[in-house]
Write a protein that binds this DNA or RNA. Structure first.
Lengths: 393, 393
DNA sequence: GGTATTAGTTCTACCTCGAAAGTATTAGTG
DNA sequence: CACTAATACTTTCGAGGTAGAACTAATACC
């Protein structure tokens, strides 16, 4: 059965606000929306009707309030009425997913990169997009997340993993696949996902820290992702954690890279045990009680705790979300994280809320898909550009 | 001549936005306001008229654009149509000012505190208010800034300098002076001043750092002051600056208190020179080329630079405003600050904009007055409460 | 079964806004 | 010095969105 693909672009103003409220906060009653958006009940009847008629929203049954009163009729988006592709591009390959309107993953695929030559990469991406779009009836837009600096027009200004500078990836990929493309920094994308569909939903202020090959950081303040030109630089990578730690390639002693990254941890455990140990194995050993591994892992976790304390002290977030491929560190050494947090956090201050994501690599792709999704539903000129641009000077 | 005191509370919505635009951005033309607020020219004629008729705004002459076209007629608030009192309360005394609608200081007065007993303090404050309000025809509201934790209802939850916990200062002072009173943390007040009338005007994101008896920090993100429950705790005071530094009373090594405060600097110079040296004298000596003083001062300045770098890396501000009684450190040792900044700041990142305020103690009062001013013009229930409360969960 | 409570609809009066056309005032240009 | 282009402001009018009141609907509780 072919599902209609209603248009988001034909709704503006308050009607769009209502649709977004439903998109983000799941099935929700008119009355609830009226309260959240500070509108009258009558307005909600009026606003909801065309949204339902256009197929954008549907009524999905009733919900008796539990207390007195007429049960509410829940509104929901038709999650599968549109699909988006999200791709995470790294130095070795690209991982892509197809998601629905709720950023839920429908399909997944990946491709290796034979070369880092822009044309070769774009060809590989186009191939990946082709494979992915075959799995659904129609794809509305494509989001691409990259570790590096990306301009608002989709140009990759600097991408160390790919050894790229100034490649107009967005326009070229768009021409190749004939779909709207949004290119952005991978951490911005990850953070946007958390803001709309993840643990940061409806929060005014939260921070994101990712563990993996590098250390990533994203910040939401005033309900919007902080989009500074510096956001893509990975400034947190050289955050000083241990004044007695090892030197990094840039000459910093004990910075985040030398203590928190997967390679730092697996390297330190390998050295302690005089044999090659993978990151995952290092965590397994620490879990199993190996003293040397435990020391390394706890040391890293304490450092992470101190880093989180620094973030909390300066940005006062309501939540800190931990993600990335290496996030299993958190479950293996949470007490050490809390210890590090305690070292740098005033006991009178509110306890820092921590939330750990799965660490699945597809999370990066989901983030990229959210950028495409946002560009579509917010009516940002869907071809190129960022989801929610910084309006600051 | 008696100046009329037009009411701000009778205007709402877009009309209030227009009035605020004029209040904050000085004399400004209708056309300019229309552009900033994204309104049509016709709307501005309509909106401005009742504001002018009610006496809230006036036309203050023309400004020929320099290029072609009809010159614009500038709108301005009647700055002296209302006055506010702002008071900074410390452990030894209270300093108060009277300001106009533009937060410009009109009068200044202070009083010592004979006792820290709440009733005695309130009596002294009432006396100070009485003295200050005599200098103008009418005072609209009073703002009170306190170093400590203040609840939204004006209750002082914790004020170490006064050895207070849970004193309903706002309500009691309000009863004593029969004027609306706003009580808030002094750094929130300082930051609000900078946001509306100081260097942070129209900025989306900036940070404030104050030097003095302690180290203060305030953050604006998304155009609003970050109002967390933790904001009044002075979390930055124990920020680790030098892993080899002296121990603070809480057992932290080299935290901000032990390196950046006035007493830390004067103490270190005194020790080096084996004689008692004041903070001001210490800076004079460093300026004059005294090697020992220069070492201490530069060390502190480098630490400050590293702190600013940390703030910049995590919050990506468009500007960092430096204030407080001890801010002369900045002019005496700016190169060292830049050096410290460079140590912790990626060279690819944007240069951190620094702005130094005068360091005058009246700045704290002006901030407190701004809170009263905001409560009045924003129509926040003027009795008690914060100017712009955090709407977050 | 009656009452209170909550959800949603319909209708109307009102308010605000923008669009368009018109007036006012300047700079530049031949 | 007229003419044009540019910019500021005003007036008028119509379109659209909103709250509010009166209404129907459906539940829980007594």
């Amino acid at each position: 059965m072919r599902i209609a693909t209603p248009s988001w672009t034909s709704h503006h103003g308050t009607a769009l606000d209502v649709a977004l409220e439903v998109l983000i906060n799941g099935p929700v009653s008119r009355a609830q929306i009226a309260r959240t958006l500070d509108l009258s009940a009558g307005s909600l009847t009026r606003l909801a009707q065309p949204l339902i008629e256009s197929g954008l929203l549907t009524e999905v049954g009733e919900q008796s309030s539990g207390h007195a009163g007429r049960p509410s009729r829940l509104l929901d988006v038709v999650a599968d009425s549109r699909h988006f592709i999200g791709i995470k591009l790294t130095g070795d390959g690209a991982l892509g997913v197809v998601t629905n309107l709720r950023a839920q993953v429908v399909t997944q695929a990946n491709t290796p990169l034979e070369s880092r030559e822009p044309s070769a990469v774009i060809a590989a991406l186009a191939q990946l997009v082709g494979e992915l779009r075959a799995s659904v009836q129609e794809v509305t837009a494509v989001g691409l997340g990259i570790g590096g600096l990306v301009a608002a027009d989709g140009t990759v200004l600097e991408a160390p993993f790919l050894e790229w500078t100034n490649i107009d990836l967005g326009a070229r990929l768009e021409a190749a696949i004939r779909l709207p493309v949004v290119v952005a920094n991978d951490l911005i994308a990850f953070t946007e996902y958390e803001r709309w569909f993840g643990g940061g939903r409806n929060l005014e202020r939260f921070a994101v820290v990712t563990l993996g090959a590098g250390i990533g950081y994203g910040l939401v303040a005033g309900g919007l992702v902080v989009q500074s030109d510096d956001a893509g630089l990975g400034l947190i990578g050289h955050w000083p954690i241990d004044p007695y730690g090892p030197l990094c390639e840039a000459g910093h002693r004990g910075c985040a890279r030398t203590i928190l990254t997967q390679s730092a941890i697996s390297g330190a455990v390998s050295e302690a045990l005089s044999r090659d140990v993978s990151y995952s194995e290092a965590l397994d050993l620490a879990s199993a009680g190996d003293a040397a591994a435990r020391t390394v892992v706890d040391n890293a976790a304490r450092g992470l705790g101190r880093l989180i304390a620094a973030i909390a002290n300066l940005t006062m977030p309501q939540l800190v979300i931990l993600g990335g491929e290496g996030v299993r560190l958190v479950s293996v050494a949470e007490p050490a994280i809390r210890q590090g947090l305690g070292e740098r956090r005033d006991p009178r201050a509110a306890e820092v809320g921590l939330l750990t994501t799965s660490g699945d690599n597809a999370e990066w792709c989901r983030g990229a898909a959210v950028l495409a999704l946002q560009a579509h539903v917010l009516g940002t000129d869907a071809s190129l550009g960022n989801g929610s641009p910084d309006t600051s000077a």
